[in-house]
Amino acid sequence: MGNYAVSTELSKKEGTDVATGWSLGTYSFDRYKKDEKNYATLMLPDGADQEMVARTVKAVTLVRDLVNLPAGDLGPTALEAAASQVAGEFEAQQGNIVGEDLLTYHFPMVHAVGRAAADAPRLIDISWGDKDAPKVTLVGKGVCFDTGGLDIKSAAGMLMMKKDMGGAATVLGLAHMIMDANLPVRLRVLIPAVENSISGNAFRPGDILTSRKGKTVEIGNTDAEGRLILADALAAADEESPDLLIDIATLTGAARVAVGTEIAATFTDDDALFSDIANHSELEKDPVWRLPLWSDYRHLLDSKFADLNNAPSGSGFGGAITAGLFLKEFVEKANSWVHFDIMAYNARSRPGRPVGGEAFVMRALFALIQERYGR
């Protein structure tokens, strides 16, 4: 295919972006089908940040590979192993709470959602960095496959459900970037990893679960399971009062209706934080769009029998907003919190973005964290 070089003068940022985009354009998921393509080589533009190019490409590749893996090869155990690889590369500490131990250590909703699966549910907990540094905590939804539970999805609705751990993959990619850059933060990564399966002990519509935070949740629909496992993880993260708490999840179809498949729906009450996210989003070509945490919709989460309902019946409108409001119930102490509802998948092929798993909002968030906490 040949070797190419950029003949025009580029800034450091432009050169870095060109090299990154070129490299990402050569991505192919070839674990099960050999890629026969040959790709041209680009000489690194003068002044480009080679370390940043390598860091970004490695992280995006990690996310894409994890999302593209079928659930038969990436259940909760395998997702834990993937997290261990990332943690081990940077000598981060990792603890895993598995199966019945989730009840002992107070992650009851993670346990309830995942207990019907043969591959036991778990809470993956990674810590890295100086304990006295600003706390940055990442929470990622790790539903390795989602049948919908007893409120079962259609066959068509299950076809893409291997990607329901896209939030977990994205926070692992972002964590890799942060640790690789040795940013001066106290990083924590929490991933509730489950399969939402069906068996005799599956959780049921009408069940009432007591969350880690103590709030009770009536199950209006077992297919709204992501917010349940995130709630327990967010409550654990919030207990440490982090300076910045970020959660990323393939949470609702309503978000895709609102912003489509190529934009990360974004929820936060912190105007300054969103302004910074939006600026970096534009610079990194990593699109976000803010939706409101509209408090007047809180009544839609009301239950006659519990503190909350995970999927209240009614109009069905504003589903991404009510999901965000549900999560907000479990965040009180964090200085800043932002929730991203993402597709985690390219539905069409574009330059540098082939059909398949994708790392939504990761590059924008790394730039934000680097700016806020970098040396």
Rank of each mutant, 00 (worst) to 15 (best):
A133C: 13
G75R: 09
Q93D: 15
E91A: 08
V136P: 03
P121Y: 06
V136M: 07
L74E: 01
D65M: 04
A87V: 05
S127V: 15
P134A: 10
A118P: 02
L123C: 09
A78C: 10
D130T: 12
P134G: 06
A78T: 09
F107T: 04
N96A: 14
T104R: 04
Q94H: 05
A116G: 07
L62W: 02
H111L: 06
L103E: 06
Y105V: 07
V110H: 01
P70R: 03
K131S: 14
G88V: 12
D132C: 11
A83M: 12
G114Q: 05
G88Q: 07
F107E: 03
P76V: 00
S84F: 08
L66G: 00
A92F: 03
A120F: 04
E51G: 06
W128E: 02
V113E: 09
L103M: 10
E91M: 07
D65T: 12
W128R: 04
D132P: 05
V98N: 07
T104W: 09
E100G: 09
V136F: 06
W128L: 06
Q85D: 11
F107Q: 01
L66K: 02
E89S: 12
A83I: 07
H111V: 01
P134E: 08
K135V: 08
T61F: 03
D119C: 13
A133K: 04
Q94M: 15
Q94Y: 04
A92Q: 06
H106V: 11
D101C: 02
R64E: 03
T56Y: 00
D65A: 04
Q85L: 08
H111M: 04
A87R: 02
E80L: 08
P70F: 08
H111D: 11
P134Y: 08
I97C: 15
Q94P: 02
A87S: 15
A117M: 05
G72T: 15
V86M: 03
V53A: 05
E80F: 04
V113T: 12
V86A: 04
T56C: 07
F107H: 12
G95S: 14
L102Q: 01
